[in-house]
Nucleic acid binder design. Sequence first.
DNA 1: GGAAAGCGACCGACCAGTCGGTTCTGCCAG
DNA 2: CTGGCAGAACCGACTGGTCGGTCGCTTTCC
Lengths: 205, 205
Amino acid sequence: MAQERARERQRRILEAALQVYARRGYGAATMDEVARASRTSKGGLYFHFPSKEDLFLALLRYAGQRLLEKAQEAMAAAPDPVSRADAALSTVLRTFSRHRALARILLLEGYGAGRRFQAEVTALRGRCAALVRGCLEEAMAQGLIGPLDAELTARAWFGAVAEVIVHWLQTGQPRRLEDAYPHLRALFLRSVGLPPGGVDHHPTP
Amino acid sequence: MAQERARERQRRILEAALQVYARRGYGAATMDEVARASRTSKGGLYFHFPSKEDLFLALLRYAGQRLLEKAQEAMAAAPDPVSRADAALSTVLRTFSRHRALARILLLEGYGAGRRFQAEVTALRGRCAALVRGCLEEAMAQGLIGPLDAELTARAWFGAVAEVIVHWLQTGQPRRLEDAYPHLRALFLRSVGLPPGGVDHHPTP
DNA sequence: GGAAAGCGACCGACCAGTCGGTTCTGCCAG
DNA sequence: CTGGCAGAACCGACTGGTCGGTCGCTTTCC
């Protein structure tokens, strides 16, 4: 019905906005461009979203949701906290590897367009870090790793991954983003005192 | 002489621009604001900088230079590669801890205002990572640490630090940025297979 | 005196947001 | 079935404010 239809239309607009903002950046992209890309009109845009700012905010939430869902899904299938964190890492790398636009929006354009957006992105990054933090705390409780500041460690890991991805976005190195996976994995495991070997839960052939 | 005078004026403009852009963000800040803050006029601004974009680009270079110089200075005084990396870490944390505006410009506002700026910031981050990379390669050559991907490790470390700083900027946690130092230090040392103890070269009382 | 530096009123492009009008869509009375 | 109505969805020309950039003039310095 109408409800359905409206939702579909909003999705189409968000998907188009994702591409346009990723390509041009928030500041340079105009509402006319987004309208054209989503095969609607400015009026149509403003019918569904009250302002340019709100559209971008909705886009950040939409994109963030997509990422978090994938990560949580992958983590749910893993048996122990360590392989859960592992699954999250490889999933994030794989997701951003396809969907460059998603990476641009969440890791690059999100910051840099006013305080309101920065807060939103920070919150999103916090939620990502919280997932990892959960793994770390569980691993600590099970005596798998020694005591450490789980909050800070999780954030540091996330920052490390983000930096590698941004560099890949900007320079194209490493050629395949997934190539960074084994190195990051080894680095992270060692950083909490675990041997870097172990089973590779998500091989990237 | 005139040369001198011009340089002084440019410094004053850049210093004012640093504050204004840090407070308002690149997009929202106007040239009139920067002119007022630097106690000049729009005409004066455009006499020294050809456009708003160029002003911000010069600001990024200016701010980046300040950071890099501090880091290199601190590293020069350290005897071995490990304590050089250590010195870089604590210096970066301390520098951003004072000079929040510097942190905002380099880590937050830099991205998010068009491709040209993103490239500049990426280059700057690359130069920071290169410093750390040098330490790692030296440490490897001296057999202090096992073989690893120095490029990627350096970048990962930098990303981790950046994330912690950005979180501090946005939320004010940890209360004193330097409080994160021992945890990050331990994390980094372990991540390359070194014992997390060792001498604390830069105690933060 | 003249060149470099500085000033600020002004201009015009640009674009977010508006609004009067049009077209769909679901529904119900006849 | 169908005519027609209500309101949701959509359209795009237009506007009004904003702000980067200009330019003719003044001041400062050598």
